[in-house]
Design a protein around this nucleic acid. Structure first.
Lengths: 213, 213
DNA sequence: GTCTATAGTACGATAGAC
DNA sequence: GTCTATCGTACTATAGAC
C-alpha cells in the first residue's frame, strides 16, 4: 500500500476511534511512524485528507446503491442494500459526528456533499416508490419523501446517537446492527400485510447477525 | 441581566450561529464587549459554560415534558409537547452538531447527559404507551422502544441533517417546523384509523405555522 | 467585578537537507 | 519520497493592577 493510501486508512481509523476533532495531522503521522513533513508531501492539508475520504464514501454508495432490479428477488436486493449500509455506517461514522463542522470548514467539500446527497435522496426515494409499487409497503406520494428523509437521517445519525448514550467504550458492530433494525422498523411501519412478512424475515436476518457477534 | 447570564446567552447565540467549535472564549468576550479575563472570572473554562447551558436544556425539558394527563384532551397536550420541542430544537441546535465532541471532552457532562437521556427515554416511551392505550396509535410492545428511539433521534439530529443540505445561510424557524412534521409522520405511521385524523389535525397545525413565517 | 498583558500550549503548515 | 527543525498562529487560561 502506498504511503498516500496508508495515510487515508490511518486517518479513517483514528478519526473513527478518537473523533476527527481530536486527531491532528501530527497524530496521523506519528501513528504511521512517518514525519509530519512527509504527510504534507502527500496531502495539502487536513481538509485534503477529508476530501479523499469523502471520495471513498461516495464511491462506496455509487457502486452499492444501484436501483432495484425487477428481475431479482426484492428481499435479496434489500439485504444487499443493508449490507452496504452496514459498511457505510461502520467505516465512516466519524464523519457524521462532526458533519456540520467539517462541511463548514470546507465550502468545496460541502458543495460536493450536498450535490451527492441530493442525488442519493432521489435514489432512495425511487427505492421507496418501487417497494410501494411492488406492494411491500403502502405509502402516500407525499409521505414517500418524508420516509426517505427519515431513512437518511437514521442512517446518518444513528452512530452519534448511540455514542451519546454510552459512558465509555467504542462503537461496536452490534451497535450498527441495532441501527439497521431501526431502518427496517421504519419500512415496517408502512408495510402492507404481505410486505410485513418479508420485512420480518429481513429483520430476523439482521437480529441473528447481531446475536452472532 | 448579570454578566454571568449575559455570557450564557451570548454563548448560546454564537454557538448556534457559528458552531461551538468555531467560537472561542475570546469571541464570546469580544461579542459582549468584555475582557477575556472577566469571562474567566465568571466561568472556569469553556466546558463550564457548556455545563451551564446543559442545565438550561435539562430544565426546559423537565418543566415542559410532564407525563400525559388523563383528564386533558390529548391533542392539546401533544401540541404543548411539540411547542416545547420547537423551543428545544431552536435554542440548542448547536449542541447536537457537536454532541460527540462536546461529551468526549467532558466526562462529567457526559455522565449527566446520559443519565438525563435515560430518564427522558422512559418519559417519551410512557407517552408512546399512553397514546397506544388511548387508541391513537397501535404499536407492539417491542416496537414502542424502537419508535421512542426514532423519535429522540429525529428531534436530536434533524437540525444537523438540515444544515448539511444547505449551501449557505442559517437555520430558520421553518426548518424546525419541517422537523416537527417528521416527528408527526413517525407517529402517524403507527396511527389507528381514529388516531390518524387527530394526528392529521396536529400536522395541519404545524404546517400552518410553517406557512405563516 | 473588570481590565490589560501575557504565559503556555498545541496545532497547521513549510523550508531545506538528504 | 522522507526527514528534521521550526515558524506563525490561535486559543486557553492566568497574573496582577485597578
Amino acid at each position: 500500500m502506498s504511503t498516500k493510501e496508508r495515510i487515508i486508512q490511518a486517518s479513517i481509523e483514528l478519526f473513527n476511534r478518537h473523533g476527527e476533532r481530536a486527531i491532528t495531522t501530527n497524530h496521523i503521522a506519528a501513528h504511521l511512524g512517518i514525519s509530519p513533513g512527509n504527510l504534507y508531501y502527500h496531502f495539502k492539508n487536513k481538509e485534503d485528507i477529508l476530501r479523499h475520504i469523502f471520495m471513498l464514501y461516495r464511491q462506496h454508495l455509487d457502486t452499492q446503491f444501484k436501483p432495484l432490479q425487477d428481475d431479482v428477488e426484492v428481499l435479496s436486493q434489500l439485504t444487499h442494500y443493508f449490507d452496504a449500509l452496514f459498511e457505510l455506517m461502520w467505516n465512516f461514522h466519524f464523519f457524521y459526528d462532526n458533519m456540520t463542522d467539517i462541511l463548514a470548514r470546507d465550502a468545496e467539500l460541502k458543495a460536493d456533499y450536498i450535490q451527492f446527497q441530493q442525488r442519493l435522496f432521489e435514489q432512495v426515494k425511487d427505492i421507496v416508490l418501487v417497494l410501494n409499487n411492488k406492494g411491500i409497503i403502502a405509502i402516500a406520494d407525499e409521505d414517500a419523501a418524508e420516509l426517505t428523509h427519515m431513512l437518511k437521517l437514521t442512517v446518518s445519525f444513528w452512530t452519534p446517537y448511540i455514542k451519546a448514550r454510552r459512558q465509555s467504550g467504542e462503537l461496536n458492530r452490534a451497535d450498527i446492527y441495532q441501527g439497521l433494525l431501526k431502518v427496517i422498523t421504519l419500512f415496517s411501519a408502512f408495510a402492507t400485510d404481505a410486505g410485513r412478512e418479508q420485512l420480518a424475515a429481513l429483520k430476523q436476518t439482521y437480529q441473528q447477525r447481531q446475536d452472532n457477534i
